[in-house]
Nucleic acid binder design. Structure first.
Length: 511
RNA sequence: CGGGGUGUAGCUUAGCUUGGUAGAGCGCGUGGUUUGGGACCACGAGGUCGCAGGUUCAAAUCCUGUCACCCCGACCA
């Protein structure tokens, strides 16, 4: 993270982070071949490298879901408008961003232009989230307390008609998982809500190497229709917060709306207690902004689609065959080593390109380890290794055998280092603040016309009122990210109104 | 949806004020020299100048309309 590059040194990504962070972000995504905008406004094409990262995220998350008793299923993309309309708050929250299917066929008109014809009797909403359609199924499945709990997850795409799309962070269509559960008691549902937040926190921390703060959302930031929303928040390198995962305690709101009812142990009809929780491809954006540097993406080994790339150096035709052979042999040996439960992913880049070009391409893609093997290495049975978490020019020459036996260890060391850096960065920019002036100063850039990277997380007392939140949001675009849950809650006075406050909350600008 | 801006090759763009056959850099292809940190030389491919009208002998250039995208504001994983 961010030793500020001195302006004379050439970086692979222009502009640098400190020059124009949003533009840098876009350029990294392009240079790393993660994704690109499509012809459909707000939608993106996720390229193999980006999708590979997503697949790894899926793999690990899915294992964690299974381990906590959840199973996958799939529900329809199209939701009857009448289902959707059942929960009033839900409608209020999502209505503005719903895409609606109103017709079932195309017909050529007189000019030969295709036009929708045959209007549907009931319009269908493309799911922005699936509480209502899944609720309809659950209503049928749940009769008795013996049917509970229901613990289901689905991997799906959803559509939210956003006004301002940004690759990964906010796109019209995105990929995610949504867990939907029904429980017999309020306490169980709450335990589930918290458990899944904990799962998310562990995933992001252990696999993405991103430290998080967790807690509950204030009323204004709550999921539409939820009783309570919990969230994990990460800090990225422009010091803004990004919500990395959310878990909702839905109380009986959706059960009531969908008619999820069961006969309880006393023989009485009762509404189920439901939860829902989700993580999306937004995590890819989080990853880019959390670990990327001025040379491109930096991937934590645990989710990198390729952990080791082998670059054959073949300056002379005579040695070419031997070098390639050695590369293949090394790749084979590495693939026999398991790293986070599966064989290490290795790629031998045999493309006929200049060595420097290939090297830089892999730097930009963020592959954790680059290994060069050339004629000189062959003679001494060595390899030349570079780690993506270190300066790009740093190289280490070690024996091939040693490299093979230590590779998993080195990957772990990179993983740990990325987490450490991110943690240090976050802590450096997290501040306990006890006065309104200091708070305003903290969140005000010195150059208003071209705001520099500033601010961070502020831990400050808040009186719990919506008015204060509103005011701060208007003045500074700063919002409460989370109200820490467990917090060894130190009470105090609201720094804005002087009224009593039961704990410090986390304030930040956010994505 | 309000306010501002921009549309020229895959990307970045010059040309537009003052109409006269569309130029460059990067990238791409071929051949060669190269190759342990972003190589070089030669040749080459690629553009209905967003789209539709209009003015004119003649439109990338002027006029009208339209569409798309970008930035700024209100909403969001």
């Amino acid at each position: 993270m961010a030793e500020p590059a001195n302006s004379s040194s050439k970086t692979a990504i222009m502009p640098r982070r400190d020059e124009d962070f949003p533009e840098w972000y876009q350029q990294v995504i392009r240079a790393a071949e993660l994704a690109e905008p499509s012809d459909v406004r707000g939608c993106m094409v996720i390229r193999p490298w980006g999708y590979g990262i997503w697949e790894n995220m899926q793999r690990h998350l899915d294992a964690m879901f299974r381990a906590t008793g959840h199973r996958n299923a799939y529900f329809p993309l199209l939701i009857p408008l009448s289902y959707f309309a059942k929960e009033a708050e839900h409608v209020k929250g999502f209505a503005k961003e719903c895409a609606v299917v109103t017709h079932s066929r195309l017909e050529a008109d007189a000019d030969g232009k295709l036009r929708p014809s045959s209007a549907l009797t009931e319009p269908l909403v493309i799911r922005p989230t699936s509480e209502t359609i899944i609720g309809a199924s659950y209503a049928k499945w749940v009769q008795s307390y013996r049917d509970l709990p229901i613990l289901i997850n689905q991997w799906a795409n959803v559509v939210r008609w956003e006004m301002r799309p940004r690759l990964f962070l906010r796109t019209t269509e995105f990929l995610w998982q949504e867990g939907h559960t029904v429980h017999e008691t309020e306490a169980e549902a709450w335990a589930e809500t918290k458990q899944m937040l904990e799962v998310y926190g562990r995933f992001v921390h252990d696999y993405l190497a991103v430290p998080i703060f967790s807690g509950e959302k204030s009323e204004s930031e709550r999921f539409p229709g939820a009783v309570q929303t919990l969230s994990i928040e990460a800090m990225v390198q422009d010091r803004k917060a990004i919500q990395a995962g959310t878990s909702h305690f839905l109380g009986q709101n959706f059960a009531r709306a969908s008619g999820i009812q069961f006969q309880n142990r006393e023989g009485k009809q009762e509404f189920g207690w439901t939860t829902s929780w989700g993580m999306s491809t937004r995590l890819l954006g989080t990853l880019v902004m959390a670990h990327g540097d001025d040379d491109g993406l930096v991937l934590p080994p645990r989710i990198a689609p390729t952990q080791v790339v082998i670059l054959p150096i073949t300056p002379k035709q005579e040695t070419r065959g031997a070098v390639l052979e050695a590369c293949d042999k090394l790749a084979k040996q590495l693939r026999e080593i398991r790293y986070v439960d599966v064989p290490i992913e290795v790629e031998v880049d045999r493309r006929d390109l200049g060595g420097g070009v290939k090297n830089w391409e892999w730097i930009k893609r963020g592959v954790p380890l680059r290994v060069e093997i050339g004629p000189r290495d062959l003679e001494s049975a060595k390899v030349t290794m570079s780690r993506r978490d270190q300066a790009t020019k740093m190289k280490e020459s070690i024996s091939m055998q040693e490299f093979v036996s230590h590779s998993a260890e080195v990957l772990d060391s990179i993983q740990r280092n990325l987490l450490e850096r991110a943690k240090k960065f976050r802590d450096q920019h997290t501040r306990v603040i006890d006065s309104k002036d200091e708070f305003y100063d903290f969140f005000t850039p010195r150059d208003a016309t071209k705001p520099e990277i500033h601010g961070g997380f502020a831990l400050a007392h808040w009186d719990g009122s919506r008015e204060v939140e509103e005011q701060i949001k208007n003045d500074l675009k700063v919002t409460i990210r989370v109200i820490p849950l467990d917090n060894s809650s130190e009470s105090g006075k609201c720094i804005f109104t002087g009224k009593p406050s039961s704990c410090r909350v986390i304030w930040a600008k956010s994505y």
